[in-house]
Nucleic acid binder design. Structure first.
Length: 372
DNA sequence: CGTATGCTCCAAGATGGACA
DNA sequence: TGTCCATCTTGGAGCATACG
């Protein structure tokens, strides 16, 4: 198992590295990451942070040392996140970014600290420079952009190694650990009895999960924001792993086995079919594909849009603009798919353009909650 | 006629020294 | 260590020329 995971981590690192450098227009600023962010608790990460911290400032003043370490931590965290997101990290050194009230100033950066962090990261081959400061943007380059950096292969490999370590303590399972109130006035916190059953569910869930392994493993907890009654959301680190540009998340392992990605559009369609008392064939898209000559992805894209639409009014603009999407489907093909569905599965008429998608998402959440 | 290449110019970021 | 300032760099917009 251990070996399988190491191999997988190495494979993930290779996947990221094989993509080379991200698109030059994809970049992220230093992110506000509290202690509970990607990587912070892994041994590799802390070792690197400690090692670089000794090099980043010559000062013997403990406050200076702490400040530098704090900033280095911010940058390293952002680097880990961006390597999983496949984006550049923008690290400006122009003084205007460090004036009082500016974002980086609020995070605790000064121009000199930023500069020292960049120097030490470059010297230790943690990052490489992409574009240096330049004029850019969509507005004919009127906006100036700061230099962009990306992690080096050794850093990517090192951080991927820590993917299957425990990122959180499963013994820290007090009620407060598992059920968190965010932005709550003290007097608005509901009585314990009213949410105790939810704490019990999440504790049972974590007790089952502690014996299993997966990427960035940490205990799940429920977070309720602003006021009670707003549905609590289950959160854990795994959800933060990138999926959009490079399919990292679905390439990870659970208990050493490859993760399977549920086909959500087919899943929703199937759930919807049961709701109207119909049954979908095992592979509903084959018939549509044969009839229209379109790929599964194109058909899925149409289905997702139609299920997500809340009313028939949206139909026109969906057809009009769907050729601009990630999976482009031109207007004629869009109509062909609709016609094919109407003919093969007439009941979809009551499902498409009727705001069914959001209701199914809610239903899915409830199933997961009750099921656990 | 459309595409590729080379050159200049621009405005804002990068840099490093003086000073507090 | 931070702040300020003058000077150096930088990528790309814009234009001209070359090429197929």
């Amino acid at each position: 198992m251990e070996q399988t995971q190491n191999d997988n981590a190495a494979k993930l690192a290779d996947m990221i590295i094989a993509n080379g450098e991200p698109d030059k227009n994809s970049s992220t600023r230093v992110l506000t990451l509290a202690g509970r962010s990607i990587g912070t608790s892994s041994a590799q990460f802390r070792a690197l942070l400690d090692e670089l911290s000794t090099k980043v400032t010559k000062s013997k003043n403990q406050t200076d040392i702490d400040n530098h370490k704090h900033c280095l931590n911010h940058i390293l965290n952002t680097l880990v996140l961006c390597m999983f997101r496949f984006e550049w990290v923008t690290l400006p050194v122009n003084s205007s970014n460090f004036k009082r009230g500016e974002y980086l100033h609020r995070l605790g950066f000064s121009r000199r600290i930023m500069q020292r962090c960049i120097d030490v990261l470059l010297e230790n081959s943690v990052i490489t420079l992409g574009r240096k400061g330049f004029k850019g943007g969509n507005d004919w380059g009127s906006r100036a952009k700061a230099s962009q950096y990306y992690p080096t292969p050794p850093f990517i490999r090192d951080m991927c190694k820590s993917l299957y370590m425990e990122f959180g303590d499963f013994d820290a399972n007090t009620d407060d650990d598992l059920y968190r109130f965010k932005r709550f006035e003290q007097e608005h916190i509901p009585p314990y009895e009213s949410y105790q059953f939810k704490v019990d569910i999440i504790r049972r869930y974590n007790n089952i999960m502690r014996d299993h392994s997966w990427a960035m493993k940490n205990p799940s907890h429920l977070t309720v924001k602003d006021f009670d009654g707003r549905s609590g959301r289950v959160t854990n680190y795994y959800q933060n792993i990138a999926q959009r540009r490079v399919p990292i998340r679905t390439s990870t392992l659970i208990d050493g086995h490859q993760v399977a990605e549920p086909d959500f559009s087919a899943n929703h369609l199937r759930m919807a079919s049961f709701l109207v008392g119909e049954e979908l064939p095992d592979d509903p898209y084959t018939a549509i594909g044969d009839e229209t000559g379109l790929t599964r992805d194109e058909i899925k894209s149409v289905v997702t849009k139609c299920m997500g639409a809340s009313s028939l009014k949206q139909k026109g603009s969906l057809i009009q603009f769907s050729h601009l999407d990630k999976t482009p489907v031109d207007a004629d093909n869009f109509r062909a798919v609709l016609a094919s569905f109407e003919h093969n599965y007439p009941w979809t008429k009551g499902i498409f353009f009727h705001d069914v998608g959001t209701r199914l998402q809610y239903l899915e959440g409830e199933i997961a909650r009750v099921g656990s």
